[in-house]
Amino acid sequence: MTKSQAIQHFGSVSALAKALGLTYEAVRQWSVVPELRQYQIEKITKGALRVEQPQVA
C-alpha cells in the first residue's frame, strides 16, 4: 500500500496516526509506509488495504 492510499482510507494523516497509536509527525515523515506498519494497517482495515509484497527478481 502507498502512504496516500492509507491516508485516503482513514481520511487524514491525523486519523491514520491515531489508528496506529502514532503522532501526526511520525506518519508525516514516512516516504513510504514501513513494512511492519503495513501489516498493522492490513489488520486494522481487515484486509481493505493489503501489504505490498517485495518484488523478487
Rank of each mutant, 00 (worst) to 15 (best):
M1H: 09
M1T: 12
T2H: 10
T2N: 12
K3Y: 06
K3D: 10
S4G: 02
S4H: 09
S4T: 12
S4P: 00
Q5I: 01
Q5R: 14
Q5E: 15
A6C: 12
A6G: 01
A6F: 01
I7K: 00
I7R: 02
Q8A: 14
H9E: 12
H9F: 15
F10L: 07
F10Q: 02
S12V: 05
S12I: 03
S12E: 13
S12N: 08
A15W: 02
L16K: 01
K18E: 14
K18S: 13
K18G: 03
A19S: 15
A19I: 06
L20K: 00
L20C: 07
L20D: 05
G21V: 08
G21H: 02
G21T: 02
G21I: 09
L22Y: 12
L22H: 13
L22F: 14
L22D: 05
T23P: 03
Y24W: 12
E25M: 10
E25Q: 13
E25S: 10
A26L: 04
A26W: 02
A26D: 03
V27R: 02
R28T: 09
R28K: 15
R28P: 00
Q29P: 00
Q29K: 15
Q29S: 11
Q29D: 03
W30Y: 06
W30Q: 06
S31V: 14
V32A: 04
V33I: 11
V33A: 02
P34V: 00
E35H: 08
E35G: 08
L36F: 06
R37V: 14
Q38A: 14
Y39I: 14
Q40S: 08
Q40G: 02
E42Y: 05
E42W: 05
E42C: 10
K43M: 10
K43N: 09
I44V: 10
I44F: 09
T45H: 13
T45P: 10
T45F: 13
T45D: 12
T45G: 11
K46W: 05
K46I: 01
K46R: 15
G47P: 07
G47K: 04
G47Y: 08
G47Q: 08
G47A: 07
L49W: 10
L49V: 07
L49S: 05
L49I: 06
R50N: 10
R50P: 02
R50V: 13
R50E: 14
V51W: 00
E52D: 11
E52Q: 12
Q53L: 14
Q53Y: 08
P54K: 06
P54F: 09
P54W: 03
Q55I: 14
V56S: 03
V56R: 01
V56Y: 03
V56F: 02
A57R: 08
A57G: 08
